[in-house]
Amino acid sequence: MPASFHLIVDRTTPEKDLLAALSGGVDVVQLRDKGASALDLYERARAVLPMIEDHGARLFINDRLDVALAVAAKGAHLGGRSLPPAVARRLAPGLLLGTSVHSLAEAKNLAGWADYLTFGQVFPSLSHPGQAAAGLEGLSAVAAAVSCPVLAIGGVSADNAAAVLAAGAAGVVVISAVLATADVAAAARRLRQVLDRCPDPVRPDPATLGGGVSR
């Protein structure tokens, strides 16, 4: 199974851009919108779910487990302010659960509870300016220390994706590398090609595996 390609979108992401990114080979669309009400998030998720599924991709909801369950998303991505994955698992045994980590210690703590970790930021990124970047060394230390797949986030693009996978990542999570480009489909396709040309990850992201968790 090739490395996975997650794209983070919010309410304001134009549907044509989402469609273009999906046609370029996104595996997982994570809907993240901290400012949205549950209803906004729910309605947006319902609106984009058909096009995501039509492309054989999967929808994950950031933070709100209840919204993920309500729209029958494939998974939920939990941040540091969200429910801990161990608690979320009790309520949603059928969802894939990812969680964000920013240090080796955090990664070791949470690896046993999550289906995948996102680690970052690996490189300086537009969405978190001023935040220290862990670099490829930080990523590779985390990937070597935990037994669950680790996805790289933060400044990841087609230009550095091969290095990120070589450091042990099972996939990448991007926003601007795809959405802040003039040709979203081409940017997505280019990143997809880089991922597909790399050797398959040792621990593949379960979000890309055939059936995933049976629901």
Binding site: S37, L39, D40, R64, D66, L69, A70, L83, R90
Partner: peptide, 26 residues
Amino acid sequence: DLALLLEADGVHLGQSDLPPAEVRRL
């Protein structure tokens, strides 16, 4: 989700929360 985890007796919704029918299903 929190109501279930806390074994609460109920959940209270506003007009911009999840639709009641979805919450009933959950």
